[in-house]
Design a protein around this nucleic acid. Structure first.
Lengths: 228, 228
DNA sequence: CGCGGCTTTGATGTTCATCAAGTAAAGTGG
DNA sequence: CCACTTTACTTGATGAACATCAAAGCCGCG
């Protein structure tokens, strides 16, 4: 029974394939291990030493910072095939943010020094990895900048559409995060997040049963996102 | 007369030195060219093809996005030894942001395909470059996240202290940006930026003569930044 | 059953954008 | 050089957007 990466869809495997030999591929795939994490469990804790290179295979995670006053701020959400250990992996010794599972997830874990070695010895791999990393950083930066110039309704609409479009690819889904987490992500108070959701519900833009959410009027929600 | 990189302090040269041969170093240094830009001039225009790898040698620049409604948003400021062509260089075809000089500047320009080639053929260089890039991305992300959870006074204090600490290394300096640019950076209205500066002035936290600015009470300004 | 966390709504005051009006400074063309 | 235009800066007034406090309902869990 071999241990090669069997996942049908895996961007990392694609990067591997396009840059390293079959022999090396097997070697690196064998060295990885998987970890199943339940919703709520930590994958990375702020302050931990950076020893692993972590890749999300299944599920949904949140990257967040816990400041001194027990204030939590969500940096971004990570979906399958995102590098979880994105920021500061190669530049810092310790994580300056935490990652925890928002939905049950499967993480694919490599030894960081193996990956570093691979970068050093394989330029194609290095370039591909840089491209992927840059894309992720860009996305986070652009998202947080775009939130910064929106107001409450626009920010909430952005989040609801993000889950519909990027994560669930459906206008009907089970909200994977609490109102509080939305608030921590968009930088507004919990109460006002709730008020915005209630307003959307009253205006028949969305429908809400507990955690279940359906977008009824996609057009108006997009208007909210883009012009508010 | 050789064309090697003569700059006494140059992080990029350090990266080169630590990873490539003297022969290659000369080759790459010879291929670069410098460009002097005056305050206000563009270095990169949003939508341009990415052909160069640009490094700031002297001066101060701003990275910004111009949205459809002639709304401008400043992403970050770049100081000497920052990679100007930071975001998306390796992942996109076209720039999705602009860069212009805020103070008279000198840019150091390499051919991007040369740098890409160097990444492919030299793993040490690749790893060093990734570390530097990650650090920059981190900084931008953390800055914009930290602004997101501050209010007017805290945001303005953050900017004033940023220039004092990171750029000018002095509590007295000539403000390199307009009130409007500060507003575009922190995501607040021009009027309120001015009001905050006026309030700081009336409280004798800072002193302002036109563009000249002196921080009188560093402690209280830091309090503003950290707890407002 | 009771506790704690999450959710919801209302009331209140603070923070902010916007409009308006005016001054100062800087560029432009004659 | 001066009149002219434009841009940057400043202050006040007003209403909108938002945080915060308070109270109550809901739900899961020990």
């Amino acid at each position: 029974m071999d241990m090669t990466c069997q996942c049908e869809f895996c961007d990392l495997k694609d990067i591997f394939y396009s840059s390293i030999s079959a022999e090396d591929l097997n070697k690196y795939c064998a060295s990885r291990h998987q970890r199943n994490v339940r919703a709520g469990e930590y994958i990375i804790k702020q302050g931990d030493d950076i020893k692993d290179f972590i890749y999300l295979k299944e599920g949904l995670v949140k990257l967040f910072r816990e400041s001194n006053q027990s204030q939590t701020q969500i940096i971004s959400f990570g979906k399958p095939f995102d590098f979880v250990s994105l920021l500061s992996v190669f530049s810092d010794e310790k994580y300056n943010y935490s990652v925890s599972a928002v939905m049950d997830s499967v993480a694919c874990i490599f030894d960081l020094s193996d990956i570093k070695q691979l970068i050093k010895t394989n330029g194609d791999f290095a370039l591909h990895l840089m491209q992927t990393q840059n894309k992720s950083s860009d996305r986070i930066i652009m998202n947080s900048l775009s939130l910064l110039q929106k107001r409450l309704y626009g920010r909430v609409a952005t989040v609801l559409l993000y889950f519909a479009i990027e994560i669930f690819k459906s206008d009907e889904y089970e909200l994977p995060v609490s109102r509080k987490e939305i608030a921590q992500y968009i930088g507004m108070s919990i109460e006002n997040v709730i008020r915005a959701i209630s307003a959307f519900r009253k205006d028949k833009i969305i429908q809400v049963y507990g955690k279940n959410l359906a977008i009824l009027d996609r057009f108006r929600l997009e208007q909210m996102r883009d012009f508010s």
